[in-house]
Structure formats: C-alpha cells, structure tokens
Design a protein around this nucleic acid. Sequence first.
DNA 1: CTGAATCCACCTCGATACTG
DNA 2: CAGTATCGAGGTGGATTCAG
Lengths: 132, 132
Amino acid sequence: MESTMKGGTPDISQQVCSYRRVLELISNKWSTLVLYALEDGGLRYGEIRRRIEGISQKMLTQTLRQLERDGLVRREVTPTVPLTVDYSLTALGETLLLPMRELKQWTNDYFDQVESARKTYDQAEQEDEAEQ
Amino acid sequence: MESTMKGGTPDISQQVCSYRRVLELISNKWSTLVLYALEDGGLRYGEIRRRIEGISQKMLTQTLRQLERDGLVRREVTPTVPLTVDYSLTALGETLLLPMRELKQWTNDYFDQVESARKTYDQAEQEDEAEQ
DNA sequence: CTGAATCCACCTCGATACTG
DNA sequence: CAGTATCGAGGTGGATTCAG
C-alpha cells in the first residue's frame, strides 16, 4: 500500500509498520536472551534459568509462553515425576536469529561510537548548565 | 570474554549483552520510525511530525534528543524568526539502518507465520478452557 | 515553529508465596 | 521440577499547558 504522495510529507507509518511488528517480538527485556540461550539446542526450564542470570521464574515463564505463542519456540513435556519440560527453537525461531546477529554485530562494531557520542553530549550539557 | 565452561550451563548474559545495548537504542516506541523517516535526507521538526502519524510533541522531542545524544541524529538550528531546526542522520545513524532493514525484511518474509502460530495457539487454549 | 514542564494512565517487571 | 497467582514499584508514553 503505497502512499499517495500528493505533495507534502507523507505519513510513513504504514511502510514502517514492519519494524514495529518485529520489535513487538524481541524488544522486551528477556526474549532475545532466551532465544540466544537456545541457539545451540534445546534446554530444560531450569537450565535456561541458570543460563540467564537474574531472570525470575515469572518472567522466564512469561517470556517462554510468548515465544511459544509466536511460533519461535517449541515446548515439549515429558510426563516423568517430577515433570520434565524441554524448550527448543523452531525453524521459524532459527530464521530470526540471523537478523538478530546482525544487530549484535552492529553493536560490536559501532557501540563505542555511541558511548563516546553520549559522553560528548553530556559534557556539553553540563557546560550549558554551568553558564546559567 | 569467553565463559569458563567448567561444566554445567553457563550464564550467557555477558555474551548476549550486545543485544541489550542495541535494543536500548531502538526498542522504544518511536526511535525506529524517526530514523526511518530521516533515511532520505534531513527534515525539519514539523515535517518529521507530519510523517509519523500519532506521535506527540513530547515523544518526538524526547526521541530526537535521545537519538542525538547517541550520535545517530544531527540537530542543526537556524536562528530565523521563527526558529528553524533541521534533523538528519549522522554517518553512524546510516550504519544502523542496515541491520534495521534486515529486521524489516524478516518481518516481510516471516511474520505471517508468526500470526498463524498465534492463531493456532490461541485456538488450542480456547479448547483447553472449554474442557473444564 | 520548536520546544519545555506537568500530571496521569497504563503496562512491564520483580518479589513473594503457593501448587501439581 | 516447573510452574501459577497476587501485589506493588517503577518507568514509558500521552494530553495538556506554557514559553522563547
């Protein structure tokens, strides 16, 4: 659905909607970490939890549920006693790992520039305040 | 900094930290839209605002400030009356556009699979509730 | 035109306690 | 072991109002 472009600056929300959709999937605090934790193969609930320091039971469960609902992660229950539950990436989940790695690469390549930009910006701001 | 891997499942938080850093930059509601709005060249404040339907003054200003602080966007003030302010991508901002496009492409290629997975999941959930 | 400042609703996330 | 349920703090984003 292209914009009509009758003149003036068009609304780009439609075109850019794709970004919003992916971000819904991965922009929360734990999703990317869980996906990344599973990249080398399936893991049990407790194993994932040990791999991701600081995650609470509630958030791990909630994140796994969301990823399962979105078709990125598969959940398999083995009715032993006590219960055994395995999680692994689906084929779809694997495909998402690729653009995620691009982002990771960008960070490795460029994030120091972001940090120095921040330092410069904050310093200039400090001086502005000092003037008053 | 590799994990020591002495046995057991290691914490991956360190390795995965890169994801968190980028996501800090683009995971909020408006940052990607603003970056995308600027991809064809600089724009004035009001033009950006018209391009992104639904953004409030506060959020546009706040987003632009953050992007400027992170060195992704450049702000240029022309002291006319009334004021003229132009925003454009920095070289660093341009580099970020590439992995962002990868994510966009992923959405175009695979998001229908996410939606159908959701549908299936929600349907199964409904049936579970009906059983009770 | 381009903001800054304030107030508020919502939602995410965390801590805690309990269950099959 | 693998969850569920509840409560509450904190942060994000929106509406409104004021200013240079």
